[in-house]
Amino acid sequence: MPTLRTVLSIPVFLALLLAPAASEDASPAAATAAVLPLLVTDGGAPAAALLARDGEGDAGGDGADGDGGDDEGHDGVAGGSGRAGGGAGSRFRYAAAGHGIARADHFRAGSVTKTFIATVVLQLAAEHRLALSDAVERHLPGLLRGHGTDGRRITLRALLTHTSGLADFTEATRGTVPLTAPQAVRTALALPPARPGRYAYSNTNYVVLGLVVRQVTGHSYAAEAERRIIAPLGLTGTSFPGARRSLPAPHGRAYTVDGSDVTELDPRVAGAAGELVTTLADLDRFYAALLGGRLLPSHWLREMLDTRAAHGSYGMGLFPVTLPCGTTVWGHNGRISGSYVRSAATADGRRVLTFRLNTDAIADPRLEPALLAAEFCPRTR
């Protein structure tokens, strides 16, 4: 699950990487096209792809791949690019050492799920069906008790901002053991808690929020997300698979860092903290709509972007990254066995980039911030 939330110091590396090419093309398209193949050659991914969206309007659904034909990428890596249809400008690009990634492919999004769950919770707050100051005990009596943990002292705000002190159940399961939500909570309670009030990323927080959504609405978090987010935005490639191990068609293959094929996976290893299956186009559309104010009233969107509780590290289901040029982007990343994905957007949602790998780790951690800088930092000829 995601741990990279601040831009690393990459002075010489980034300066060389983002230097204008011989063509003097200073566009984000040229910059990201130069960086993306490095996720394969230097980052160790079998394949990588991105879809960037620039401007208002619909960036197009998960239709045809939109490839403009294969070309030869950096260092002999096969690559391709194209433009998606729709009202907003969007660019698809992939690089692969073997089989590529198609624009329409479904994949597991890991902790990007948390942005969906946080949006549902904040919508319920806007409807006065819960308050962020509510103690967990009010909605789930007796759930969080023992080993120094007391649900009477943990608020929903603390869950949303990862300041609850709840241990991360995946420290015990390593993200490989399917669990029900109560089992995940019991597993977490058997681990040493973190210090309440301090930011400590924990998947358990969002598993508990999933239970709160069910208690408040009478429906699962998946059903509420479908009704409130997925259907209204037309995210036709996005779903909460529950216990279904297979991915919807079309999809590619997913691999661990040692090369094992983990395309078939029980999503209950993550639950409400990381169950989501989606597409590049759907994630771009979701973050554009969220940050553009289409899913939350302005007051609640400001709450979502308020990082004070987590001392600047995290809002509610979103976190900021300030790039070397001073631009701050908002979004989330997700890591689950066989998949890594990162969505980032400007604060107004007008520009969004989502990239993904068909493996769960980037060998060189400098590459992610470099790709974000290539897309969002202005460049001059």
Rank of each mutant, 00 (worst) to 15 (best):
P2N: 13
P2H: 09
F13V: 08
A21W: 07
A22G: 15
A22Y: 10
E24A: 15
E24I: 00
A31I: 05
L38W: 07
L39C: 04
V40W: 02
A47Y: 12
R53Y: 06
E56T: 14
G57D: 06
A64M: 06
G68D: 15
D71C: 14
E72N: 12
H74A: 15
R91L: 15
Y94G: 00
A102T: 11
D105N: 12
D105T: 01
H106Y: 09
R108I: 02
A109N: 11
V112Y: 10
K114W: 05
A118P: 03
V120D: 11
A131H: 11
G142I: 03
L144D: 12
H147N: 15
H147C: 01
R152Y: 09
R153E: 14
R153F: 01
T155V: 02
L160A: 09
T163Y: 10
T163K: 07
S164F: 08
G165E: 08
T170M: 09
A172F: 08
P178N: 13
A184Y: 06
L189T: 03
P193F: 08
R195N: 03
G197F: 11
R198Q: 15
S202Y: 10
N205W: 08
N205G: 03
L209P: 00
G210K: 05
G210L: 08
V212F: 13
V213R: 00
R214T: 13
H219G: 09
A222N: 06
A223N: 00
A223P: 00
A225E: 14
A225C: 09
R227W: 11
R228A: 14
I230Q: 05
L233R: 05
L235P: 00
F240H: 10
R244F: 00
H251Q: 06
G252S: 09
G259V: 02
D266Q: 07
P267Y: 12
G274W: 07
T278I: 05
T279V: 04
T279M: 03
L280G: 01
R285W: 03
R285S: 08
A289C: 05
L290I: 03
L290A: 06
R294N: 03
L296C: 05
P297I: 01
H299E: 13
R302A: 14
L305I: 01
R308I: 04
H311Y: 12
G315W: 01
G315P: 11
M316F: 02
M316S: 09
G317Q: 04
G317T: 04
L318H: 03
L318T: 08
P324D: 10
P324E: 13
P324F: 14
G326L: 13
G326R: 14
V329N: 01
V329P: 00
N333C: 07
N333K: 00
I336V: 15
Y340W: 10
G349N: 07
R350H: 12
T354L: 12
N358G: 01
P365K: 07
R366K: 11
L367C: 01
A373F: 11
A373E: 15
P378L: 07
